[in-house]
Amino acid sequence: MKLPKGFLFDFDGVIVNSFESHFSAWKSAFKELFNEEIAPFPKFHSGKSPLIIAEYFCSLIDKQAQTEELYLLKDSHLDKYFKVPELLPGVREITAFLSEEKIPYGIASNATKQFLKNSVHHLALNFTTIFGVQDYDKPKPAPEAYIKLANALGFVNADFKDIWVFEDSLTGTTAAKLAGMIPIGILTQYTEKELREAGSQLVFPTLLEAYQYLQHQKL
């Protein structure tokens, strides 16, 4: 089998488990702004832009007017009280494999650019092309994130059908599908059935199994 032309990666839930990093920043920012404890994080908002998540938390206490204030404060807390996220299996293996095969790859996430840069730096990851939520006019589930990343890696529209996109959320899977690329599911939070129904063409527990699959296909 011929390997895909390019590989695009979501970040949270694919490369790292960053739930604690993000939620602790939401909690401390919410407490500072409203002097109240925040509600549990809703699964249906996973992968969505931080502004949508901020709006959700503010709506629970009827403070929608302060959505942007919470969003900006959370971003500053994420940076100020930065917690290195947990690296998920297979990241180093798959990036080494792609580098060896000279296949372009990069990150497009709805997380903020500073969090992505901090994480990549502290975990010493081999990613040089990184896009965060501030880089898009329309974050995922719109396809802009993946189209921008693919273009930055040197791809044109005709290549998109040969590009894999690793995603763990339904939001991101939709974005990849709308971009005309091949969504590949990672089982961090949704079931194989849910990911396939959203458009994932293959599903793996982690990037480690995806790497092993690619190695086998190359033989």
Rank of each mutant, 00 (worst) to 15 (best):
M1P: 11
K2I: 14
K2G: 05
K2N: 14
L3F: 13
P4N: 07
K5L: 12
F7Y: 11
L8V: 13
D12H: 03
G13M: 12
G13W: 03
V16F: 00
V16Q: 00
S18R: 01
E20C: 13
E20Y: 13
S21N: 14
H22Q: 15
F23W: 12
A25M: 13
W26E: 05
K27F: 07
S28R: 10
F30I: 08
F30T: 03
K31G: 03
K31N: 10
E32A: 09
N35K: 11
N35W: 05
E36G: 07
E37K: 11
E37A: 13
A39W: 10
P40A: 09
P42S: 09
S46Q: 06
S49K: 07
L51P: 04
I52Y: 11
I53F: 04
E55N: 04
E55R: 13
Y56K: 08
L60E: 03
I61V: 12
K63M: 14
A65H: 15
E68N: 14
L72G: 10
L73I: 07
K74T: 11
S76H: 15
S76Y: 10
D79F: 11
F82W: 09
V84M: 12
E86P: 13
P89D: 02
P89R: 09
G90K: 04
I94Q: 00
T95D: 08
L98K: 02
L98N: 09
S99M: 01
E100A: 15
E101I: 13
I103L: 12
I103H: 10
P104E: 11
P104D: 08
Y105L: 04
I107K: 06
I107M: 08
S109I: 12
A111G: 07
T112C: 08
F115M: 14
L116H: 11
N118F: 02
H121D: 06
H121T: 11
A124T: 11
F127T: 05
F127M: 10
I130L: 05
I130T: 01
F131R: 02
F131K: 05
G132D: 01
G132N: 02
V133D: 10
D135Q: 04
K138A: 15
P139T: 06
P139R: 05
P143F: 08
P143Q: 03
P143R: 00
K148P: 03
F155D: 00
F155G: 01
N157C: 07
A158R: 11
K161W: 12
D162A: 05
F166A: 02
F166W: 07
E167M: 02
T171C: 08
T173Q: 05
T174M: 13
A175S: 15
K177C: 07
L178R: 13
L178P: 05
A179Q: 11
P183Q: 04
I184K: 01
I186T: 06
L187M: 15
Y190E: 02
T191R: 07
E192L: 11
K193P: 03
K193N: 03
E194I: 10
E194T: 02
E194M: 06
A198M: 09
G199W: 12
G199K: 14
Q201S: 02
Q201Y: 03
L202G: 06
L202K: 08
V203M: 11
T206M: 08
L207E: 03
A210P: 01
Y211W: 15
Q212M: 00
Y213D: 07
Y213F: 12
L214H: 02
Q215Y: 12
Q215R: 14
